[in-house]
Design a protein around this nucleic acid. Structure first.
Lengths: 193, 193
DNA sequence: TGGGGTGGCTAATGCCATTAGCCTTAAGCT
DNA sequence: AGCTTAAGGCTAATGGCATTAGCCACCCCA
């Protein structure tokens, strides 16, 4: 009987893809094992149970999302950076809803857990984008939380099919970014002498 | 052996409360049965399984959230209505995270499913609030989606403990509402002759 | 060539959801 | 009051899942 050639990375990647297809909540060791052409207990040679698997998927998702945002922002500034960053995040959620869902709700288990830094990266990239607007220091955190909330909320509602009417969702998103940009630039002007 | 005095409402309410405590994902028929002092199969006399139970919790949550927003808005207008509505929604999520989580992801199963109207109510209330800003008709849907996304995103991030730094979360929320109000009023002025 | 670890497997346990079928209770009717 | 009946408990049984223990073949390397 030939080996299946699995390791922790392959299993995690396959689990992530499966989660994207059926939802992180439906992910099970047995379905994943079937998908990989292996019996369920074999997965335990590579991954420490379902909990550990979803944790790994969360790290993967956060890392990939961070990569996507960073790449989108590279070489841009101002509204363009804001639009690119938020669209990159939203696009990642659309392409990988299961991985993204794994990141929400996941909490680092300790100081050496790679999940902590991984989760921080997309947020940090957004923070950099917002610095272009020259906000007051105590406003930066509020603006960051706002943008995070907006993109996260929009993407998750979109993912669950929560937007009902026929109005174009893409258009709503760009309108929202425009709204943000205007408001943030207004604040900046507010603080000029 | 005396009867436990259960019916569908009591079971749903108890399930909702349990979901608020341990999370909708951890809700199980067996824990709920134990909580109600009854054996698991007895619950099936009142509720058609775990899926049906969470569906009922979703209807309950959406209805309660709708009530909360409607009451908050009553007698107010403008920013005050916007602040009251969004704070009411956020407050509901804080008080009843399990019920709210049940509403997200739940989809009506048919035209006679009470979930549809229940989910629509909080959104409709928000739409009414936004009408005070006298937006252009084609902008209304974008603004509504934006506000929904923002509040939903903020509340869910807050619920999962996603806001890290010590900065006051209440302050961020009121800052965000203020930002919205300014932007929305600005749009209105934009469209005056 | 001959270990030894790696990575499969089967078997077994225990929890959970769900269904079937029994039996008591309580409510209502005569 | 006594009888009937349905509602609402229960036990028993099934099947899916996660997880663990322990077995065994394969492959790499000495």
């Amino acid at each position: 009987m030939p080996r299946a050639g699995l390791d922790a990375e392959v299993v995690t990647e396959a689990g992530a893809t499966l989660a994207d297809e059926i939802g992180i909540g439906q992910l099970s060791m047995s379905i994943l094992a079937t998908r990989l052409g292996v019996k369920t207990p074999s997965l335990y040679k590579h991954v420490d149970g379902l909990g550990a698997l979803t944790h790994r998927i969360a790290v993967l998702g956060a890392t990939e999302a961070g990569d996507a945002v960073e790449e989108a922002v590279r070489g841009r500034s101002g509204v363009e950076a804001l639009a690119a960053a938020t669209q990159a995040l939203r696009g990642y959620v659309r392409r990988h809803p299961g991985r993204y869902a794994a990141t929400t709700g996941a909490r680092p288990t300790g100081d050496d857990d790679p999940l902590g830094p991984a989760l921080a990266r997309p947020i940090a990239s957004l923070a950099v984008v917002l610095q272009d607007y020259g906000l007051e220091p105590d406003e930066e955190i509020h603006a960051l939380r706002m943008v995070r909330s907006m993109v996260h909320g929009f993407a998750t509602i979109e993912d669950t099919g929560g937007f009902q009417w026929a109005a174009d969702v893409d258009e709503s998103f760009t309108w929202m970014i425009d709204f943000l940009d205007h408001g943030l630039r207004g604040r900046h002007d507010l603080h000029l002498p």
